[in-house]
Design a protein around this nucleic acid. Structure first.
Lengths: 139, 139
DNA sequence: TCTTGACCTGTGAGTAAGACACAGGTTTAC
DNA sequence: GTAAACCTGTGTCTTACTCACAGGTCAAGA
């Protein structure tokens, strides 16, 4: 299959497949016309990669995992370890986004009753500079 | 103030200040020793930038906002417009993270009762490849 | 067989928001 | 004056793709 065919078959983009190929996660052969040729085993491999990405593994993680497997070793232990790390990170980012969202919504609400103002030498935009971002350190 | 002093005074890093400086968001002068010199007005400007970042504005957004203000125009309308866009994006990313977190937790739970396995020619890691990622398309 | 046009490919570069490396300059203590 | 400690600016690296683009390929028509 060509890059476009395999991408379509896996519901992803040709660019993504090319990216993984460039990194050496898959190593397709070449057709006579010079185009890369993806086999069924390349397809399983890509399917694996996409699944792992869906679970929050980084591309680097996946590279490691594939290396283990390519050496015939079970990657399960590694996989279990990595996902814990990634889950911790995700949880942290999640909390941060939650806070960010809260700040944004609060600002938007506050601004509803604030009028527009011209900037001064020590104030770029009073909306932003006077936003009451409580919830961080309110006594 | 030197870059390190101003960074400390604003509870950020010298690298961050240098980054904004490189982009031209602040334009410090030079001291005799060749080091950049940050004035009080640079400090207010940086404080503004950091506040805006806290509210989810991108650095590019902030550049636009500062430009308006530097031309003496009120940036409020722009600010109001931009935050709506950013909030929408944040909301979307937030939902995606929620889904990701759900998938990860679900996988971790499923894997508790699954044993490690060696890879086969058509299976890199059965934990990942057999994960039941329901909630996406379950009939 | 040749040609035109549509489509596709691989490769190089660009993106966000800093973090990091490092050679060299500066300051302080002696 | 010198040495050690510290600091600076600049260039490079990071993630996970996405975009641009010159050129090659394929099918249809003449």
């Amino acid at each position: 299959m060509t890059v476009n065919e395999i991408a379509t078959s896996l519901a992803t983009t040709a660019d993504t497949v090319r990216y993984y190929t460039r990194l050496g996660l898959v190593t397709p052969g070449k057709s006579d016309n010079g185009y890369k040729f993806y086999s069924n085993s390349d397809q399983s491999r890509l399917r694996f990669i996409l699944s792992a990405r869906q679970l929050g593994f980084s591309v680097k993680d996946i590279k490691q995992i594939l290396q283990e497997a390519d050496h015939g070793k079970s990657a399960c232990a590694l996989v279990r370890k990595l996902i814990k790390t990634r889950l911790d990170e995700t949880e942290k980012q999640f909390q941060e986004m939650l806070q960010l969202r809260k700040r944004m919504k609060r600002a938007l609400k506050q601004w509803d009753v604030m009028e527009d103002k011209a900037p001064t030498s020590h104030m770029v935009c009073h909306l932003i500079e006077n936003v009451n971002s409580s919830g961080i350190g309110e006594a």
